[in-house]
Design a protein around this nucleic acid. Structure first.
Lengths: 365, 365
DNA sequence: GTGAAAGCGCTAACAA
DNA sequence: TTGTTAGCGCTTTCAC
């Protein structure tokens, strides 16, 4: 009944060689004669040999050093979640000999990113997880990783030219579409909609423009009535003209909704809207940051789209672990669902857990 | 730097006993003198010994037989998803010596449930995962499991008196609230809302009434205007009066929304609404069944709440595995988030994956 | 009660 | 180029 498990030993016997030889072909560490190789591979294939990964990690008593490169978690609650996910992952994988070192940089300082990247390399990691939020600065960094043949995974921000083994994050264009959809539900007549970019350098943050594009496309395709879309951005917290421009916007009688393109800006926008008076203006932003949850509960924010920073980081590490330890080739792109948070379903998200498994490459359709 | 890992051997040495003795106290298999026990436990505690679970599963070459009891997957796409999750789980855990046998019963036949339950017992399982959709019939079944000291977990339907080690599913009351919230977005004025129960025996399905309650509570608390809530149920597919009653309902000029309480009924209701003419009547139902996705895409259904049947089943098995193999006490209640599916975010859900980890008890807040 | 020893499937160092 | 062997940390059996 119980189908027998085939061990290396069995393969060796069947092929008429020693287990050492089988091991060598399995890991192609050379030193195998043509003849032996042929025989072993044949037997391997015939029996559909699958290594026991449990035994593998026990046997090779290796330690893996992973390094993550991300914005300083103390600077921003979004990245604090990310960091939490990293710690979680370390905890989960420590049994497999995985240790993680985190290198942080300043969200506003591209220089500090480059310096942190150097630090990463000095640590001689076996794998790297990186949040490449500065496009231009990231490219040469990728190159150094690549040249040293260190596998690296991206999360949060996708850079196609990166050569990374995987990207973990969301589809930003569709994220914008979802935001627009939520803003349009039940609305009619002529409407002004606004996209707010708060404290982001749009030159370097192509990704936010992706969201904007999705937003605009949806409104243009589906909005039931004449619509105008205004884009407003605050370049820094000391950008005083922003307040004025926002005030002007809020005065428009047909303003129907505001979409804030980042988790950081969401609460900022909410506080403006609150003091101005909500007047039925729908507000959609990102993530379950504490402030955002409060504004959602009090009705200032209508919807949040959950980017799951914690889970992204966790998955990022897990991806590297799968690659390094379990030799599973990761999906090149791992897109998270665009989860919609409302006042009523929000509590059900706050107890959510991360669950993982070593051979976690199972994909569902 | 790298903090040393403490093995049984180390504990034994520190306590001045053999590893055999340490093992005995770890698993309290008796045969340990007062004295030794005291010493070992002291050392254990002092060093915060944590067993290497990897080595554990390798060492004890045990096989675990799990059995699941659920409605016939061929009968209903919802349960087909569930079954997929089971297969997935088997695949994931097979490395740890886990095998799973599935026993199915007829959704409409309580008798067949009881018979299937008997079959389950005959298989002498080490653990059981059960979808106890028939309340009254389930109670005695739980008792037989309990009497034989077989650990069992519930999913899909919560029965508080079950004595199960865990329940995996959703909070139905809040599910109803979320549905109501979605139906109310952007609506105003006097409105009739309807809750549809399609093909469910309400006597035995207290859980659907939970959803209805949540729905009603929300509307009464928050709806902006006078509201009437009508509850309609079809007891079987041959309940011809249902069609008439539904037609009457659909004629109401102020009908603003319909909430279908189960995944199965969702497409049925959608087809009715489609042929009647949508007329701005909002429709909220459950799950990403193929038909539902179609109706969502074509605009007949406005929102789906995702119950994640596949993930529920997967988690259920994982819960048992954690309990049996990793000796981790599971959370007694594992509530999934109430995920809102819209036309725009739906595609991002269709590539979703299940990720798991052996020590998967990590909880995030 | 206790300890010694074999073995789980695999890796890696070493001898041949 | 090959085969042998000693572990990895834990379980389990079997003598003492």
């Amino acid at each position: 009944m119980a189908k027998k498990i085939i061990r290396i030993k069995d393969i060796a016997k069947a092929a008429g060689v020693s287990i050492g030889t089988v091991d060598r072909v399995l890991h192609n560490r050379g030193k195998v004669s043509e003849d032996a190789l042929k025989k072993v591979t044949a037997v391997l294939k015939k029996n559909e040999y699958k290594p026991n990964l449990i035994a593998r990690t026990l046997g090779s008593n290796k330690a893996y050093r992973l390094v993550t490169l991300l914005p300083n978690p103390e600077q921003d609650p979004y990245w604090a979640f990310t960091h939490k996910g990293i710690l979680q992952a370390e905890n989960e994988w420590s049994h497999y000999g995985v240790s993680i070192v985190t290198c942080v940089f300043d969200l506003q300082e591209k220089k500090s990113f480059e310096e942190a990247a150097k630090k990463v390399l000095k640590l001689k990691p076996d794998g790297i997880l990186i949040a490449p939020i500065f496009y231009k600065e990231a490219l040469p960094v990728f190159k150094t990783f690549f040249d040293k043949a260190i596998p690296y995974a991206l999360f949060n921000t996708h850079i196609k030219e990166s050569n990374a083994i995987s990207f973990i994050g969301q589809d930003l264009y569709h994220s914008g579409r979802v935001a627009a959809e939520l803003i349009c539900i039940g609305q009619k007549g002529p409407g002004t909609f606004s996209v707010l970019h708060v404290d982001e350098d749009l030159n370097d943050s192509i990704h936010l423009l992706e969201k904007e594009k999705g937003f605009k496309d949806y409104v243009n395709e589906f909005y039931d009535g004449h619509s105008v879309i205004e884009s407003l951005n605050r370049t820094s917290s000391t950008d005083f003209s922003f307040k004025k421009r926002l005030a002007t916007l809020l005065k428009k009688p047909d303003l129907k909704g505001i979409f804030v393109s980042s988790s950081r800006g969401t609460a900022t926008a909410a506080s403006f809207l609150k003091s101005h008076g909500k007047n039925g203006i729908r507000l959609v932003g990102y993530d379950l940051l504490e402030k955002n949850v409060e504004y959602l509960n009090s009705g200032v924010i209508d919807f949040l789209i959950h980017q799951k920073p914690q889970q992204q980081a966790f998955e990022g590490i897990s991806c590297l672990v799968n690659h390094l330890i379990f030799k599973k080739s990761p999906q090149p792109i791992n897109l998270f669902p665009l989860e919609v948070i409302t006042r009523q379903n929000m509590p059900s998200y706050q107890v959510e857990s991360i669950n993982y498994h070593p051979q976690g490459t199972s994909i569902l359709n």
